[in-house]
């Protein structure tokens, strides 16, 4: 089930111009390093068994470091298999600005956090609203515009998006 969903997620990522790699806890550190273009900043992942601590990533950066960074690494709350979307929380750790300001966003998503489609993701998000409504964004692919007369990627948001899918079960 999870493997099929990861494969579908991967196809959707590629269809939306997002590169990706899959790994497990053991391979995470080396997979992550390959995905970085320094200088990199990040927010703590909060996932069991993996962290950014051994990588060349400034965890919990200052706003100045954030603005100077080329890569931002964040965890994501959900991945949407049908579209290759991430649900990025506007949390107190700064996942929103770290996924938004640098030219490259590396999203770390757990296989167990993949849902089939957007309606399913909205269901999950909606269920959490009962306890406390939150702020988050479904991000799919690089930021883009057609407003200058042709399609250009990399506008106010990241030009490059990379996913590291963590097989956690």
């Amino acid at each position: 089930m999870s493997a099929t969903r990861i494969a579908e997620f991967g196809e959707s990522l590629e269809a939306h111009g997002v590169s990706w790699a899959r790994t497990d806890a053991d391979g995470f550190a080396s997979t992550l390093v390959e995905s970085l273009v320094e200088p990199a900043v990040g927010v703590p992942l909060g996932y069991e068994g993996v962290s950014l601590d051994d990588a060349p990533v400034t965890v919990d950066p200052t706003p100045a470091e954030l603005r100077a960074a080329t890569t931002g690494v964040t965890p994501v709350r959900l991945g949407v298999a049908a579209y290759g979307s991430f649900l990025v929380d506007s949390d107190a750790k700064g996942s929103e600005p770290v996924s938004l300001y640098p030219e490259r966003h590396v999203a770390v998503v757990r296989g167990s956090d993949l849902v089939a489609d957007l309606p399913a993701a909205l269901d999950e998000l909606g269920a959490s609203y009962a306890a406390e409504p939150s702020s988050a964004v479904f991000a799919t692919g690089p930021s883009a515009t057609g407003d200058m007369g042709a399609l250009v990627e990399g506008v106010h948001g990241p030009k490059h998006v990379h996913a590291v899918v963590l097989e956690d079960r």
Binding site: Y83, S85, D91, A92, E96, S134, S135, T140, S143
Partner: peptide
């Protein structure tokens, strides 16, 4: 199929001041 960004904002958010 989907916009690049679909923001679901319930402000004021917990996102840090910048």
């Amino acid at each position: 199929d989907v916009p690049q960004y679909l923001s679901m904002l319930t402000p004021p958010s917990d996102s840090p001041s910048l």
